[in-house]
């Protein structure tokens, strides 16, 4: 072998090895990506809920994307309480206005999943008469905001809109 060959040979080996690595990575991608939500799941129908049968003070639970969604028809008093709470008292400060639709303040729509570890909280319970998660004792107020306990953030508000005065479309 002369002195020039080793470099050419090394280049060849590196190129082959690099192509092998790229090929393996490219082949791995479909095998990984198949675990992500598929097209039918992504397109899953939004849920439409008729609000007319929900009485004041009542909370109903509907299913959206496999998760419970709470729809609370809040009383005047509950709305009042949620509004007068000072933001500095809140671990995750958000005003009540920002969690409901303007002019529809009586309707509180929440993803019913505790932000601690995913249990489903109970309505009208806990120290703040909002929601209470029995798993690890998180207390939420009448706006679904965390007040006490291990949960780090407020109950999530899903994307939703009013199709009409008595019809809400979640998702």
């Amino acid at each position: 072998m002369n002195g020039e060959q080793p470099t050419r040979r090394d280049f060849l080996y590196i190129a082959t090895g690099a192509m092998g690595a790229v090929g393996a990575a490219a082949a791995a991608w479909p095998l990984i990506h198949q675990m992500n939500p598929d097209a039918s799941v992504q397109a899953l129908a939004s849920t439409e809920v008729d609000l007319s049968p929900i009485k004041e003070g009542q909370i109903i639970t509907v299913k959206w994307r496999g998760k419970p969604v709470f729809i609370a028809h809040r009383t005047k008093q509950e709305i009042e309480e949620a509004r007068k709470t000072q933001l500095r008292e809140l671990p995750d400060p958000v005003a009540d206005d920002a969690r409901v639709k303007k002019g529809k303040e009586q309707w509180l729509v929440l993803v019913g999943v505790c932000t601690h570890l995913g249990c489903v909280p109970l309505g009208h319970q806990g120290d703040y008469k909002g929601f209470f998660c029995p798993c690890h004792g998180s207390h939420y107020d009448t706006s679904g905001r965390i007040r006490k306990g291990p949960a780090p953030t407020n109950l999530e508000v899903p994307p939703y809109e009013f199709a009409s005065d008595t019809m809400v479309r979640i998702g």
């Binding site: 991608w29 479909p30 198949q34 598929d38 097209a39 799941v41």
Partner: peptide
């Protein structure tokens, strides 16, 4: 058919 149509790269796999 769900694999063929909807799963990401399902047709390929």
């Amino acid at each position: 058919e769900h694999i063929m149509r909807d799963v990401n790269y399902g047709w390929l796999i």
